[in-house]
């Protein structure tokens, strides 16, 4: 193995290691950006991810100079990362000097920041594009094929990790919703019992009293129920017809 192959293999292990415990998207993408610089020999690397509304955000950059340029790219609404994200294809090794027409605002800014060439790779799994990886160079030597394949592989690993993480987060959110709904139901039943016993009404009368209190005070039924169960609220039974005759 060449030393670059060794570095690529090591990077894959590092990325995979980041997928297990305490997975954090920003950590993963920061590792990825730094590794692009050390393994691929580019001057700077940065990653953008699309938010829920489809708007790209800068998530990780290997340097401050890079971060500022990526923010500028988003503000100018033109540049390699945006193009790659929107098309779903790589933007292959563009010499910035010859890109003045393509990116009239971005190209001069990138050159002023000291860069000479750019390359962008979409973060894509099948049809879904979730962001893009930007690689910048201070010279126009270009990235060799092996380097490009490695960059593509890094981007794929990151994409799969992020999509999996999102799926799991969504599942956990639904589990929480389910358990919250169950708890809500239990507390409401408990509160009905408390009111039924205190006010000598049946369950329907108790439920009506809870609902009436929630309506009158613009509160959620489950919050009213929780307060009744905690003993901090005693809703009045408004309608006498709901009263159960005491024996």
């Amino acid at each position: 193995m060449t030393s670059q192959q060794t570095l690529i293999a090591e990077t894959m292990v590092t990325l995979a290691d980041n997928l297990v415990a305490d997975f954090d998207v920003i950590d993963l993408l920061t590792v990825l950006a730094d590794r692009c610089v050390s393994v691929l020999g580019v001057s700077a690397a940065g990653l953008m991810l699309a938010g829920p509304d489809g708007t790209l955000r800068v998530i990780a950059s290997s340097s401050e100079r890079m971060r500022l340029l990526e923010l500028f790219e988003l503000q100018a609404e033109e540049g390699p990362c945006l193009e790659s994200y929107l098309s779903g294809d790589a933007v292959a090794q563009v010499d910035l000097e010859s890109a003045m027409d393509r990116w009239p605002r971005f190209a001069p800014e990138a050159i002023a920041s000291g860069f000479r060439a750019v390359h962008a790779i979409p973060l894509r799994l099948r049809g879904e594009v979730i962001g893009a990886l930007n690689l910048f160079q201070d010279d126009t030597r270009g990235i060799d094929d092996e380097g490009l394949r490695a960059a593509r592989a890094f981007a794929d690993v990151a994409t799969i990790a992020i999509l999996q993480y999102r799926a799991i987060s969504r599942s956990h959110e639904l589990v929480d919703q389910l358990n919250t709904a169950l708890n809500r139901r239990i507390v409401i039943e408990q509160a009905k019992g408390v009111v039924a016993e205190r006010e000598h009404v049946d369950m329907e009368g108790a439920f009506e009293a809870l609902r009436q209190h929630a309506r009158d005070h613009n509160l959620r039924l489950s919050d009213v129920a929780a307060a009744v169960v905690a003993g901090s609220l005693r809703p009045t039974v408004a309608s006498p017809r709901l009263r159960r005759p005491t024996s």
């Binding site: 139901r185 408990q190 019992g193 408390v194 016993e197 205190r198 369950m203």
Partner: peptide, 15 residues
């Protein structure tokens, strides 16, 4: 969901 058990818990807690 055994609603009746939770209703009874509410009543018995007052008792």
């Amino acid at each position: 969901l055994h609603a009746v058990v939770h209703q009874a818990s509410g009543m018995a807690s007052v008792q």
